[in-house]
């Protein structure tokens, strides 16, 4: 049974290689979207891909990658995409080692790996993620200037009354120093200033961070936009009057955003390329936005 399945896979792979051999990266997105629309018909067999794709890394990108994998697997029954977490560092390391086909990362490969290793990887900016500062609802603050935000996270301001809030101590809730979310927030919201780690609660993941912020009066933290899409327990904070939203990210007025990367070792396998093209296709774009991420092609500014 296993052997039969393997030979079917191999045949399909050979077919798809013939079919996709000449397609460039811009046109595979169309062919895979066509396949997704009509996967049951025989004509689609030429467009579908087969084989296995493994991906690991960033937990911020994981929900999106998983959603894409589900749909991609449905459209391409001969192909199986598996997505694991593990953190950006793990993802980059594993794709560089060849352990996985795709390494998901919140940060550039250069910031985690040696330059010569990073040079062997090919970056795919699959989507944009916006980071938002969030506060406990008791604080009643909805807008902070960038300088106030910096002073709060560097523990220069320790009471909400200093920024127009109630007389309440500020509880900082942060992420580990190796976190991609933290790196992004530090770079664009705090202009590179180091957070006061010695006065902050540290949480391993964004879910826990949200819980901490919502349960502790006076707490402030930061998460990626997807985490607060359907969450009314915390109050997102606007920076200099600009609310954290996809719209404001697209038009460039909200500064705290970054690309989510899928790295392949070299060009990557046929199947891995097809998967990444599917993630970046127009067909998948509404799903990206529904999850709270931004579509890379809609950005009017670039970094």
């Amino acid at each position: 049974m296993k052997r039969a399945l393997a030979s079917v896979c191999a045949a399909a792979l050979a077919l798809s290689m013939v079919a996709c051999g000449s397609t460039t990266s811009s046109s595979t997105s169309e062919s895979s979207s066509a396949a997704a629309g009509d996967s049951s018909s025989t004509s689609a067999a030429a467009a579908t891909v087969s084989g296995t794709v493994t991906a690991s890394g960033s937990s911020a990108l994981q929900p999106l990658a998983q959603k894409a994998a589900e749909e991609f697997n449905t459209a391409n029954p001969d192909c199986s995409v598996t997505v694991n977490g593990g953190g950006s560092g793990t993802g980059l390391q594993q794709v560089a080692d060849g352990t996985v086909d795709i390494g998901n990362s919140d940060v550039d490969a250069e910031s985690k790996l040696d330059a010569d290793v990073a040079a062997t990887l090919v970056d795919h900016r699959v989507c944009v993620v916006t980071m938002a500062a969030v506060v406990n609802k008791d604080v009643g603050i909805t807008d902070l200037t960038k300088d106030q935000l910096k002073d709060i996270f560097t523990a220069k301001i320790t009471n909400w009354s200093e920024v127009g809030g109630p007389d309440e101590e500020i509880i900082l809730v942060t992420r580990p120093s190796s976190s991609g979310t933290r790196a992004l927030f530090q770079e664009y919201a705090l202009d590179g200033e180091e957070e006061a780690s010695n006065a902050a609660l540290e949480t391993d993941d964004s879910g826990t961070l949200l819980q901490n912020v919502s349960q502790n009066a006076g707490a402030i933290g930061y998460v990626a936009l997807p985490y607060i899409m359907n969450n009314d327990d915390v109050q997102p904070v606007a920076i200099d009057g600009v609310e954290p939203s996809l719209e404001n990210t697209y038009n460039g007025s909200y500064p705290v955003w970054g690309y989510e990367h899928m790295y392949t070792n070299g060009e990557g396998s046929e199947a891995a390329q097809a998967f990444i093209n599917y993630v970046m296709s127009d067909e998948f774009a509404p799903e990206i936005e529904a999850l709270g991420y931004g579509v890379t092609s809609k950005m009017t500014v670039e970094r």
């Binding site: 560092g89 390391q93 580990p176």
Partner: peptide, 15 residues
């Protein structure tokens, strides 16, 4: 160890 191991690349100083 638990909170930073996944985000640091093998062989880096942090790791």
């Amino acid at each position: 160890i638990a909170s930073d191991m996944g985000n640091t690349a093998d062989g880096s100083e942090h790791n």
